[in-house]
């Protein structure tokens, strides 16, 4: 099992840092899955922890100048690591102006991700800051726990409004209520609603558009012959939604959500070379 990678380009490095920061905001601990072509940050929370799920996928070729990976076995050429993304994020903080960053899987006393940051220097000798981040190697028999979640059989799929606006609205609502009802229809309308003893607030977004899911896709079933006006809704923990909106730094080119009535809300944030999926289960 071997892994080493190197980033030289500053733009790539900053982009990678932003992705890691986003993950750090969303998950205390998560699984880092490495394959020959991609990196994945995976969170599959148990129901006891609120049951939030996350699936973030990056093409290594768009970030790394060197990327060597040897999995546990030739026929299972992958590595699964348990990491605390906050540690990775902190290590990359020193790398804002770095000339190069090397990431390597080591096993001195315990398995570690070694992040070596080469900083610019005026003299000929270079300055290198090294962070050893302890990781857990996840044995192969547990890999099945971390399979890509299916796009749920949603009732409504809709593009999200400008995330900044949505974030402000959700932040205010969070002061007033613990849960929020998110509802949308196939006419491009989405509402955020809270209701308490003191106050009820509804924010109406319109003209958002509904993403065209290919008709071959079976997951469209329940959305297909749906009344365009009728709302699909789910009540979710408002802090989870706020965390996603406040934590995301990927500046997605496309952001959408899929609502399965009273079951789950599935958020997808897409950037050229990053995709982030986030699942928030509905409250009873």
């Amino acid at each position: 099992m071997r892994f080493r990678a190197k980033i030289v380009d500053l733009a790539c490095l900053n982009h990678f840092s932003r992705v890691v920061n986003t993950i750090a905001k969303l998950a205390k601990a998560c699984t880092l899955r490495l394959t020959a072509g991609k990196l994945y940050f995976i969170l599959s929370d148990k129901v006891a922890n609120g049951g939030v799920g996350m699936w973030c996928e990056l093409c290594q070729g768009n970030f790394f100048d060197e990327f060597q990976m040897e999995g546990v076995a030739p026929e299972h050429n992958e590595i699964y690591l348990e990491v605390v993304p906050e540690n990775l994020s902190r290590a990359l903080k020193t790398a804002q102006s770095a000339k190069a960053v090397k990431i390597k899987l080591t096993n001195k006393h315990c398995p570690c991700l070694r992040v070596a940051v080469e900083l610019p220097s005026l003299s000929s000798s270079s300055r290198i800051v090294t962070h050893d981040i302890p990781v857990g190697v996840i044995p192969r028999r547990l890999w099945n726990d971390f399979r890509e979640p299916n796009v749920p059989d949603f009732d409504v799929s809709i593009y999200l409004p400008v995330l900044k606006t949505m974030k402000t609205v959700v932040e205010r609502m969070k002061n007033l209520s613990n849960s929020v009802v998110i509802e949308a229809n196939l006419s491009g309308e989405m509402n955020l609603k809270i209701e308490t003893d003191l106050v009820s607030v509804t924010t109406h977004f319109k003209d958002l558009g509904n993403p065209p899911w290919a008709s071959v896709d079976e997951c469209q079933d329940s959305a297909q012959d749906r009344d365009l006006e009728s709302m699909a809704e789910a009540r979710i923990d408002i802090r989870k939604l706020q965390q996603l909106l406040a934590g995301q730094q990927v500046n997605p080119t496309k952001a959408l959500c899929n609502i399965v009535s009273k079951r789950i809300v599935h958020f997808i944030l897409l950037h050229e070379d990053v995709s982030l999926q986030y699942f928030i289960p509905a409250l009873a």
């Binding site: 409004p161 606006t165 609205v169 003893d197 003191l198 106050v199 009820s200 607030v201 509804t202 924010t203 109406h204 977004f205 319109k206 003209d207």
Partner: peptide, 12 residues
């Protein structure tokens, strides 16, 4: 209302 987004509040 701001930028076409409308919020309705009912405060007791």
């Amino acid at each position: 209302e701001e930028g076409g987004v409308v919020t309705v509040c009912k405060i007791n």
